[in-house]
Design a protein around this nucleic acid. Structure first.
Lengths: 344, 344
DNA sequence: TTGTAAGCGTTATCAT
DNA sequence: ATGATAACGCTTACAA
């Protein structure tokens, strides 16, 4: 391994001078700096990150911790974050939490908070206050954080407005009996709404129903305990066979992944989309464009989400001194109308 | 920040004792060790990774560098790797190279080789010999490495056998005019085959054609310069409109992502799958199960791939002394028959 | 069985 | 404008 001392020796200067020169400190004359850079390059010198981090506390790395890497939405989101982080001159590392609390804690404690100048985190299990302790004082921006009095800045998807737009679109194309797939009716009844992503999407649905004077009941919601493809596919058959949901002609799935597999479930039963039942999803994953029929959806603009998130975080990293109340931003979204809601 | 000294002071021992105790060195009596662990826990002590890494060269982190995080196959693969790495008691970090050479180099130089005990890398642009220099002597296992004389261990997907199986399956169900979507006919003619993943899949196709005495020509291949959804969808229309490909009744796409969007392209033109054209893909991504029609495919067993890769790597990490010629393993695969190749 | 002390390669604070 | 020289927090011979 070639260290800073080697470079210093080869260039005939001290280690300190090398350190300054390589990081562009104006104290060093351009001529010596240039020479040092050349020597460093010719020796293939690379700064040791551990040493730098130990001494300065900075690494130039931003961590992204995400629940699942193998679902389209989180993976497209991580990719967008990685690109934006790289664009801003940092290195991105991505970690999978698997939505397990132990894992979230381990990741934060053992690597993210230690190796990263800041982190982007989508908390599933760990509460805000706990996060503060785990963050080791490092800046953090949360995604879709729902805690009532936030500790960190956060960037959210447009849950309520997006859901409102989705349901209104179904109403606009003439749907009379609309079902939201994902949430539970109990949640609505118990009024635990504002405190979660699901709840906020539910709120949006309600607003759309109300606006059109549609009375709401259990037959407007189908609860999905786990938002995975297989249960979603099964849910389609279950819905068609259940008396409660007879006459459904419009479905709003709380994620595109649910929607695509639900649509597959409808196909299993010979139900045509959109002719028999119109469908719309949420997220705007790439697959939604290529399904047959293609899926209408509320697309979260991931570039905008990444831009806002990374910008907020880097602002914290670079002006350590700021603060004030935690900010809450919302990512842009758009309604994308495709075949699954196309009516003659 | 609470350091080892704080723990030592609180427990009334020296820093060294704390260090030994916390890492389970048998020299320390169980009673003192227990006490130290308790004190450490109560102070929320966490070892500083930079310091540990600087001193010992070990971090307990394994890096996974992958071309694109937002395509189903690589993201499902990274997820499988992450799970397996965690199962083996290491922490996984994932980085996106975006298939750019600069990026691959930056990632290896600036973080992976520095912070990780070892790395799993899927080289797109950087040659094996270059990698050796960038690896800083850290162990590395490559994925689908195709270099003729390998420097590192590698684990490959079953390109040739998988492609052979796919094409044979199409032949078995009665396809007469089969097209492979992805590779170029020129590659075959120029015999640059064994040197790439594409080439090895092509080899498998050829073997299947030969076995059934099918004569092979340009009309059996449709070149796709970029394996992305949009060009694949467009390729379907182009194929149908081209004189060269009249009468095609079976299509083998070199990836599932190509297959799903190609299938969408066929739907755009009113062509039915499998009735008019049968289709099979390669990879076995989750989406392939939920498309309409569901997609037959050669599924790479990602758990097996991850198991073999991580095992090889950890073996290197933990017995620094081994070596011998680089090993080359192949991940298990299976033919999955679904609707897209179902004939009455 | 435990403590002492010398680094690991940087960065930052002084002097010069 | 540059050079000595302490840290940073941990690991690990070696000494006690």
């Amino acid at each position: 391994m070639v260290t800073m001392s080697d470079v210093a020796k080869a260039a005939g200067v001290s280690r300190a001078t090398v350190s300054y020169a390589l990081r562009g400190d104006p104290r060093i004359t351009e001529s010596t700096a240039k020479k040092i850079r050349e020597v460093a390059a010719s020796l293939h010198y690379n700064a040791n990150l551990s040493a730098r981090s130990l001494r300065s506390g900075r690494t130039g790395i931003i961590g992204v911790a995400i629940f699942e890497l193998d679902r389209p939405y989180p993976s497209e989101m991580s990719a967008a974050m990685s690109r934006e982080i790289a664009r801003r001159g940092y290195q991105a590392i991505v970690q999978q939490t698997s939505s397990s609390k132990d894992n979230e804690i381990a990741i934060l404690q053992k690597v993210t908070s230690q190796l990263c100048d800041g982190m982007i985190f989508s908390p599933a299990q760990v509460a805000d206050e706990e996060l503060r302790a785990l963050s080791h004082g490092k800046p953090m921006v949360l995604l879709d954080d729902i805690s009532p009095d936030p500790v960190f800045d956060s960037v959210n998807t447009a849950c309520e407005d997006g859901a409102f737009t989705a349901v209104r679109h179904l109403i606009n194309i003439g749907c009379k009996h609309i079902v939201a797939i994902g949430p539970s009716y109990e949640m609505l009844v118990e009024d635990r709404m504002a405190t979660s992503v699901v709840g906020r999407r539910l709120l949006g649905c309600l607003r759309a129903f109300e606006q059109s004077d549609i009375e709401v009941g259990p037959s407007n919601f189908l609860h999905l305990p786990k938002w995975d493809p297989e249960p979603s596919r099964a849910a389609a058959r279950a819905m068609l066979e259940s008396a409660r949901y007879q006459g459904v002609d419009g479905v709003f799935c709380f994620t595109d992944t649910i929607a695509l597999s639900f649509m597959r479930g409808l196909a299993d039963c010979g139900v045509r989309v959109p002719d028999d039942i119109a469908m719309i999803g949420f997220d705007g994953i790439s697959d939604s464009e290529y399904s047959v029929p293609s899926l209408s959806t509320i697309r979260t603009n991931l570039d905008d989400l990444a831009h806002k998130t990374v910008d907020l975080l880097i602002r914290h990293i670079e002006n350590e001194g700021d603060d004030g109340a935690p900010q809450r931003l919302t990512a842009d979204y758009e309604l994308i109308m495709r075949e699954s809601t196309r009516r003659r």
